[in-house]
Design a protein around this nucleic acid. Structure first.
Lengths: 184, 184
DNA sequence: GAAATATGTCACAACAATGTGACATCAATC
DNA sequence: GATTGATGTCACATTGTTGTGACATATTTC
């Protein structure tokens, strides 16, 4: 398997838990030495940048596919949730990273307009659904956005905890999410 | 105001964002020098321990009050949610800290059985409500527990973001939470 | 205003994390 | 079996973080 990708995968998991974690921990998780890690990424910043690009690519691909699979905006929303869940830790870390501009400045990550526009497209779905009376207009769109992100976080934790039957989790997530935003 | 407490408050906020953050950042947030911080807490471990105790105390007091205010288990659950929200970042950080035993070992935090028993008491409420048919028995108790914790996190973010009317947030949180677990 | 208390500034040693060079080792390929 | 490519080991300079001592400067209390 691609060593570079193996490092990125490990970095995403470790840095998601603790953003200031030393590179040794990432190397440890890949069964490679820190020296090898540095052969692929000269810099910590370069590694983080690679993680960001990887997460962004994965997320955008998943979201595009989810939206392309149907015309029904309700089904689109459901598929978007599943797509986020499939991205898992990537999705969570990406949003954590991009919602903390201080961290970005420190690591020199450029502002990514692709992300913003893509994201904004997804979340224009909500007002559209509200106009069609499929979601109560009482519930704030910003609130729904927070619930969406957090539902993916809950789901990832559920998978990791092992306390919940793996097969049920996705349906459970969609059930809880759609009810939390006032559907059905 | 109590300087010691001021430091703890700052530490909770900063460490919640980045657990490995240098002490300078905490000191900066209090408008005190790092030297003064070290006069109150000789050690980083000691400061973290103080944060843990502070969070635990605040949380337990809030939860006890919430449960003592009524006999109705449904109202109790609602009050518990509001209590968690009032604890805010404290609640989130406490759960983050106590759910990562690796971090505890590193900092020498002792396992706290008071926390576990108190927590377990609260979450015995769920099965009780399910037996009374107030919550669907279809929904897993572990899942509900995750939703509860995350709903508080969402609410704190909503307060911080400023995108949502402050007055509405608590009611919004209770509405979304109770529907997400299958009530009403 | 003198004494006591709290805080700031500076310097410093100890340690941890980073990034790199030099060279060894191992496996695959020719 | 010699060569190449990927990785490991070790050493090293550099930088960031930590905890502490010595002393200066307010601020409060008597």
């Amino acid at each position: 398997m691609d060593t570079r990708q193996k490092i990125i995968d490990a970095a995403i998991i470790v840095l998601n838990e603790d953003f200031s974690s030393p590179l040794d921990k990432i190397a440890e998780r890949t069964d490679l030495s820190r020296r090898t890690l540095h052969r692929y990424f000269t810099d910590r910043a370069e590694l983080i940048e690679a993680c960001r690009e990887d997460m962004l690519r994965t997320w955008q691909a998943a979201m595009l596919q989810a939206c392309g699979s149907t015309e029904d905006p309700l089904l689109q929303l459901e598929q978007m949730l599943y797509a986020g869940i499939d991205c898992g830790v990537r999705y969570i870390f990406l949003h954590k990273l991009l919602s903390q501009p201080e961290a970005n400045k420190a690591t020199g990550i450029p502002q990514n307009t692709t992300y913003e526009t893509t994201r904004d497209n997804w979340f224009q779905l909500i007002p559209a659904l509200q106009r069609r009376q499929l979601i109560s207009e009482q519930v704030n769109a910003a609130w729904i956005r927070l619930l969406f992100i957090q539902m993916i976080s809950v789901t990832v934790q559920a998978y990791q905890s092992g306390d919940i039957a793996q097969n049920d989790i996705k349906q459970l997530a969609w059930y809880s999410f759609r009810r939390s935003i006032g559907m059905e």
